[in-house]
């Protein structure tokens, strides 16, 4: 594989996604500052975790006074999909040898999409994957920092930053709602969460129980549609 080609393709293909990721990063930075995260903590989490969904959910749960155990359990659930991504990317990254331990840091939604498409067409290409991950990582860090700087200087109520949490999650959710099982998962999650909040108002288990139960409804719908 031509190294120059890998670098050029990695940069060109990662750039549009880097812009999209920067929008999420900006939101994360603002939200983290609303969850009483300092500048160093906000950027530190982006540097060390590098996962939009985990970081967003964590700051939202912190803002709602969730305890450490619940946050960890919920994020473990969120991270389950990384097992699939890692398994799918393993062959494409394998030629990197021990560097794959570093490249594995990029096993997350967007690099997975680009990496798996590349490996399918051209075979293993760890350099391409490194360029993609590095570009997206930089975009995530810089935008998190920018968001934290903006968020720290605003009065949350006056600027509606408290509304940014649910609105951001809604904007994250919508693009994925295309297939019936996914829609069923989202709707059943809404029903389960409302019921739990109604009967056990302000409890700490709504997210965990909903996260475990609602995908089962999605699976049920998937099977039903396949057999009909």
């Amino acid at each position: 594989m031509d190294e120059k080609k890998s670098v050029r393709s990695g940069l060109i293909e990662a750039l549009p996604l880097a812009i999209a990721i920067a929008a999420y990063g900006l939101s994360y930075g603002v939200l983290a500052s609303q969850a009483k995260f300092g500048l160093a903590e906000t950027v530190g989490m982006s540097l060390l975790v590098f996962s939009g969904s985990v970081q967003m959910v964590t700051v939202a749960m912190l803002a709602a006074d969730a305890n450490l155990t619940n946050i960890l359990f919920t994020t473990v659930l969120l991270n389950l999909r990384n097992l699939l991504y890692g398994a799918a990317l393993a062959q494409g990254i394998a030629p990197a040898g021990k560097w794959r331990w570093l490249l594995s840091f990029g096993v997350t939604d967007e690099p997975f999409v680009l990496g798996s498409a590349r490996f399918k067409r051209y075979g293993p290409d760890p350099l391409y994957y490194a360029i993609v991950t590095g570009t997206l990582y930089l975009a995530w860090i810089i935008s998190s920092l920018s968001g934290a700087l903006i968020g720290n200087r605003m009065d949350p109520q006056q600027w509606g930053l408290d509304l940014a949490f649910p609105v951001t999650f809604m904007a994250l959710l919508i693009p994925g709602l295309k297939e019936n099982p996914v829609i069923a998962t989202a709707l059943s999650a809404a029903v389960i969460a409302v019921v739990l909040e109604y009967f056990f108002s302000g409890n700490n288990f709504t997210l965990i129980l909903t996260g475990v139960l609602s995908p089962l409804i999605g699976l049920y719908v998937k099977r039903r549609f396949r057999h009909d």
Partner: peptide, 9 residues
Amino acid sequence: VGIISALII
């Protein structure tokens, strides 16, 4: 999807 929906609710 389930967790994000619950967060919105």
